[in-house]
Design a protein around this nucleic acid. Structure first.
Lengths: 226, 226
DNA sequence: GACTTCACACCTAGGTGCTAAGTT
DNA sequence: AACTTAGCACCTAGGTGTGAAGTC
């Protein structure tokens, strides 16, 4: 099935003022990281990305995927992510935009999601995209390891940590100089249990392969160039 | 959907003479290994197990799954399998049974399938079943790593190798005394590109969750106790 | 003739947002 | 009223054996 152009409303979106594009490529020391599918991330970012959670844990869409350069080929690295609070506020959606709604519920700290490949030489990390597609978001405080525990109606941003695995400490402090951290502005999102912004809903339908059931209903499909 | 009893023809099968049950539990030094779902393996074994292959690689059914005891909890182990020729003959199916049909095509040697978990402490290996459900069989000599390369119409048996990973050699020789090898007689099979024995076909339909499409056709379903 | 490959329909498995019902 | 949960239909993804077509 051919994919039509995304709904026209989703292009210019909420107005040109928001149409900025944060850098999709960051450097830390000799290590360079590029955010893949940045143009899709940008589309969501400009509308105010929302990510649904559930008790069981839910994948992110878009998900975090990177290309990595500048690692030492023979040295081993561990790749980890965490989802960090952006600020200390709680938010609400008033029907058309997000607004502050009091102080944040304290963050459930310290959970890292380690890439399942484990400790792998830099050579191999640089060969293929580094994907965290299977990181799950949950609002259940008792969730299994490997799930990120978030609060609904709060604002978060994913952080990538590239950790030199020299065998000293398997899970070093993130302040350790052997940890390189990368944060891409356009991956910021609001955690929700149901989508609030209908344009976000439409973008999800359109780009997420599992969301196509609803791609053609309620005017979310439009003809190219119409 | 409830599962009816397996077809009556598949019980007594080819006759009582074949109805032996090889041990489902083996020991090597202090290490003990139990073959899971041995009663299903036995049913196939008594009819002459066949495993289909394809170019792209195909899962085994039944697949090899074990429980392990007697490892040193803190020591690391690597789990590997290979599919070994049982003899040096080629076979053919004459419509009712397998018979010799000349000398074997030389085996494509030395390929090991390593359990994807990698090097893990004995404690953890003993906690959960050790499954090789995702080992693929192929007849394509150029297949990707992790596929077992076999010849059709030849007879094979899977071997489990438990390898002490003391960091000396990542992929030691199988003659190394730090390698414990286990071979369960009832996992022997004929490699085929299409099933020959129709009773094997029926057993596969019956037990493989993906084969249920054909469970109810051509008399493969029978009523319990009829 | 004997064996292999391919396209197919059918199934399991599991992710998706929806709606309705439940909770606070 | 605001937010969360559970069940649903719908989809993708991919394993299954079949039967027809292809190969040797």
């Amino acid at each position: 099935m051919e994919r039509a152009a995304p709904p026209a409303a989703l292009g210019p979106g909420l107005g040109a003022a928001l149409m900025e594009s944060p850098p999709s490529c960051l450097r830390s020391g000799s290590v360079k990281v590029h955010l893949k599918k940045w143009s899709i991330w940008d589309k969501f970012y400009n509308l105010g990305t929302e990510m649904r959670m559930s008790k069981r844990g839910r994948f992110m869409f878009p998900y975090c995927e990177y290309s990595v350069w500048g690692l030492e080929p023979a040295k081993n690295y561990i790749m980890a992510m965490d989802i960090s609070p952006v600020d200390s506020y709680r938010y609400r959606y008033n029907g058309s935009k997000w607004q502050l709604s009091g102080k944040a519920t304290p963050h459930v700290m310290g959970r890292l999601y380690f890439h399942p490949k484990g400790s792998v030489p830099g050579r191999e990390w640089m060969l293929a995209p580094l994907s965290f597609a299977r990181l799950r978001l949950t609002n259940c405080p008792a969730a299994a390891e490997g799930h990120a525990i978030l609060h609904s109606m709060h604002r978060y941003i994913p952080q990538l940590h590239i950790i030199v695995a020299d065998g000293v400490a398997p899970r070093p402090s993130l302040d350790d100089p052997r940890v390189y951290t990368f944060v891409f502005q356009q991956t910021e999102f609001f955690a929700v249990t149901k989508y609030e912004n209908k344009f976000i809903r439409q973008l999800k339908h359109f780009y997420n392969p599992y969301g196509t059931a609803l791609r053609d209903v309620k005017g979310s499909k439009q003809v190219t160039g119409a």
